[in-house]
Design a protein around this nucleic acid. Structure first.
Ligand SMILES: NC(=O)c1ccc[n+]([C@@H]2O[C@H](COP(=O)([O-])OP(=O)(O)OC[C@H]3O[C@@H](n4cnc5c(N)ncnc54)[C@H](O)[C@@H]3O)[C@@H](O)[C@H]2O)c1
Ligand SMILES: NC(=O)c1ccc[n+]([C@@H]2O[C@H](COP(=O)([O-])OP(=O)(O)OC[C@H]3O[C@@H](n4cnc5c(N)ncnc54)[C@H](O)[C@@H]3O)[C@@H](O)[C@H]2O)c1
Lengths: 215, 215
DNA sequence: AGGAGTTTGTGAACGGAAGAACAAAACGAG
DNA sequence: CTCGTTTTGTTCTTCCGTTCACAAACTCCT
């Protein structure tokens, strides 16, 4: 379920505040979801709450982390160390949430050996070697759109089975490989859509059909 | 509808290739959605297709752009010019899709007057002035999580009614203000979740959620 | 110990999206 | 002009996620 990471983050905040237990109502308001939905989500992983009391924050946190699979560290490779790739490489939030960037790859020779976030940028052709050596199963694509499909194919061939794609392209991958895409332009366009609706209260009054067949 | 931007992008590609008309089947495979769903989406904006022929690429593209509201340029401010803010400021894809970054704001004085992507980084306190002067209604938050809520409050007070939030926090905003969040850690965690399921075949198999399409 | 007050877990109702299927419309060939 | 082919627009059915509502279970206070 896609909401588990949100609960996990909220629980981490509660742990840091030294809060030992919380009700579904508390967690629900903290994460912005309906409390019934939250309880149903949690009950899906088992009965980890106590009626009349709530949930043990630490215990629930561990259970969710275990369910998601972030009790272990996942090695990750990032391909395309441009504007976005640099930002990602420097992002500390990955590390603290169970992901370890093991390599930065780029096709452009002028980027090689450059140090980014304590890692050197390596040639894209080292992909297979690195994936095999570090048992990498998750790859991040931050290359231009035209290169994304090629990079994805190489990743899949090398053994990567999950891809996070920042390039604005639809990737085609074989069965068994998961792709998630993050497209910032789309996010902005969705905002613009709602924004336009706010400005024009007359909304879509029946886009009336303009043509009638004449007999 | 959240799929319109995807159709728009696919149509833009078709335009660039000089293709004049396309069927719902074509667009569906190009975007990775079901053709019936796509037709239903398009029919929601009106009857812009011709039975037996398909859709006029240029015309449909314009209609979708108009529906989304990207026939005009939307001014955007970015707050928090760190790793991520820099990448966003340098991203050309916003401009080409109907968004214009009008200002880069940061609270840290040492960043001020620095030039990023042809714009100078200005003090966060200039927010209200800029929003008013440029009629900005869309703001992007790329600050650390602790500052995000404050920034959002200031944005809302200044007149921003749509926020794209990259900080891993749940923002609370008044009615009428739209917030979309992009949380990269969550995306990775969802991948890790599926990845773990692949490795452990005892879990509930099934639900193959991937996009399979030919490019 | 018992009752009052909480809070979980879940059965049932609801809503809306997704897919299958088909009739209506356009076009081209003969 | 008519028929066959293609493809849209839409209806109908199915399914999944959300929400409501409530009994069961636990704590605390008297
Ligand atoms: N910068 C942003 O904020 C932003 C926002 C949204 C989406 N994106 C998308 O993310 C992607 C990267 O954006 P960017 O701004 O970092 O671009 P960029 O041009 O700065 O960086 C791209 C990098 O990929 C490398 N590259 C190119 N082809 C490659 C290949 N075949 N194999 C390996 N590496 C290759 C290039 O050498 C370059 O270093 C683009 O698809 C862009 O549309 C970026
Ligand atoms: N870097 C990434 O790839 C990445 C990935 C996912 C999420 N994020 C999130 O995006 C946000 C920014 O990440 P980053 O790596 O760019 O961080 P960063 O520390 O590099 O940059 C943050 C910037 O925000 C500025 N800032 C701090 N408080 C401010 C305030 N109150 N008003 C205005 N500006 C303020 C700082 O001066 C700094 O320049 C964080 O919340 C992070 O969790 C970043």
């Amino acid at each position: 379920m896609a909401r588990l990471p949100i609960y996990l983050r909220a629980l981490t905040v509660l742990v840091e505040r030294g809060i030992g237990t919380c009700s579904s109502e508390d967690l629900a308001t903290a994460t912005g979801v309906n409390s019934a939905k939250l309880r149903k989500d949690l009950s899906y992983l088992g009965s980890y709450g106590t009626r009349g009391v709530g949930y043990d924050v630490d215990y629930l946190r561990y259970q969710i982390a275990r369910e998601i699979g972030v009790t272990q560290d996942w090695p990750v490779v990032i391909v395309g160390i441009g504007n976005l790739g640099n930002a990602l490489a420097n992002y500390s939030g990955f590390r603290s949430r169970g992901f370890r960037v093991v390599a930065l790859l780029d096709a452009a020779p002028e980027r090689h050996d450059e140090a980014v976030a304590g890692l050197e940028v390596r040639p894209f052709d080292d992909l297979e070697e690195i994936v095999a050596a570090e048992s990498v199963s998750i790859g991040v694509i931050a290359t231009p759109a035209v290169a994304a499909q090629d990079v994805a194919d190489r990743m899949v061939a090398a053994g990567v089975t999950s891809i996070l794609n920042f390039a604005p392209t639809v990737l085609s991958v074989p069965e068994g490989v998961d792709v998630r895409k993050v497209d910032l332009s789309i996010e902005l366009q969705i905002l613009a859509y709602h924004e336009q609706r706010k400005a024009a209260p007359d909304a879509d009054l029946g886009h009336a059909t303009d043509q009638e067949v004449i007999a």
